[in-house]
Design a binder for these strands. Structure first.
Lengths: 140, 140
DNA sequence: TTGATTGCAAAGTGTTTGCAACTAG
DNA sequence: CTAGTTGCAAACACTTTGCAATCAA
């Protein structure tokens, strides 16, 4: 999306609600990737009264705003995690257990940029998916 | 009678049907990752009479048997591709007109390999999508 | 013949949306 | 007040399953 980014991060009327706070806390507690369903279950288990729809709505909003990293598990769930690095980055995903490792390496970034430029493309953006077997899943 | 070690994967009564053949051909034609829905649509468009259920059934069977690689798209679809050992190439896609340019550059290949190795992953494979505006679509 | 295969219809997932009630500012 | 939020219920998209009809060997 060639977004003319007219969106101010700390945008207009954005309220602080009990639900949002609970969700934010849940995300901070476990820095790992978690599914909406799982987060919702935890909140409920913890006594928080939050609707599943709200969890979905908020997670998507946060992800769209760039505050959360997302990735699809092999089982088909969308997993969310608080962003750790501000910069654009990629992940390696274990195709067996779904475990992910973050990649912070500018090499691809510049590679993609130069390759695109050479082909005459502008306003470039890219996605990279690396899959493999992690150490633990290596033998079986 | 001595039980013959039933360890042959491609064993028992497996039939050759029109549908299976069509599906196999579709998979061979485009060596890229494709969704079940997309494959089914192509088959239908090509005049083949194949049920969506059958496409799903066969793709899953083939994947379980290890004949197909699978991977989840960010949109939530399961993508299938015939297994292969040979390296693949990538494309840059114009997000406006859809024109694609082939990328021939091993840089990413080795980058992906080294990054994966550093993270302790094996049997690695990757996909790269670069999108942008091609020369012709640059100015509106 | 006979068991593998097909594919319609229906059931299941995870996720999104319509929208009336609710609430922070 | 009033626009941002909530969450139930219903809609959705993708995938799987039940099962009777079909068909390859």
């Amino acid at each position: 999306m060639p977004s003319p980014t007219t969106s101010n991060p700390a945008a207009a009327g954005e309220r602080s609600t009990r639900q949002k706070r609970a969700l934010a806390q849940a995300l901070d507690e476990t820095g790992e990737f978690r599914s909406a369903q799982s987060i919702h279950a935890s909140l409920r288990a913890g006594g928080e009264r939050v609707g599943l729809t709200t969890v979905y709505n908020q997670l998507r909003a946060l992800a769209d705003a760039g505050s959360l990293d997302t990735f699809r598990s092999p089982e088909g769930e969308t997993l969310y995690r608080r962003c750790r690095t501000e910069q654009h980055h990629h992940h390696i995903v274990c195709r067996r257990c779904g475990r992910t490792v973050e990649i912070e390496d500018d090499a691809v970034e510049s590679w993609a940029a130069s390759v695109a430029k050479r082909a005459g493309f502008t306003e470039v953006e890219h996605t990279v998916e690396i899959m493999g077997l992690c150490r633990d899943c290596r033998r079986t």
